[in-house]
C-alpha cells in the first residue's frame, strides 16, 4: 500500500515474475512483464498469467508492489 503522503507516489515497484525479482514502474500492467513471445502466446490463448494465489490476471491488470506472478503455458 502507498504511504499517506499526499503527493503522487512515483517510486518504482518490485514484482516477482517467474521467480525473478524485477523493478517496474508504478502503473505498469501485466502485459509489460511479458516478452514478445510470451505476449503472442497469451494473445493466442495458449498461455496466461497467474498470481501467487493461483488467480488468473488479465493482461491489462495493473501490477502492485510485492506481487508474485508467473506464466502458465497450456499444453
Amino acid at each position: 500500500m502507498i504511504d499517506g503522503d499526499k503527493s503522487a507516489p512515483v517510486l518504482p515497484i518490485s514484482v516477482t515474475w517467474n521467480g525473478n525479482l524485477i523493478e517496474m514502474r508504478r502503473g505498469a500492467k501485466v502485459k509489460h512483464l511479458l516478452s514478445t513471445q510470451e505476449l503472442k502466446w497469451c494473445n493466442k490463448g495458449s498461455a496466461f498469467v497467474l498470481d501467487e494465489d493461483g488467480n488468473e490476471m488479465g493482461l491489462d491488470g495493473t501490477l502492485s508492489n510485492g506481487m508474485a506472478l508467473y506464466l502458465k503455458i497450456l499444453k
Partner: peptide, 29 residues
C-alpha cells in the same frame, strides 16, 4: 487492485464484510 484489497482486509478484518475489487483484472474463482 487485489494486493491492496488484501492489505485493507488485513488492517480491518472485523470492520469490513465484503470487498468488491477491480484494477488488477484478477479472476477470483
Amino acid at each position: 487492485g487485489y494486493e491492496e484489497d488484501i492489505q485493507l482486509a488485513r488492517q480491518f478484518p472485523k470492520d469490513i464484510q465484503v470487498i468488491v475489487g477491480g484494477h488488477s483484472h484478477t479472476k477470483i474463482d
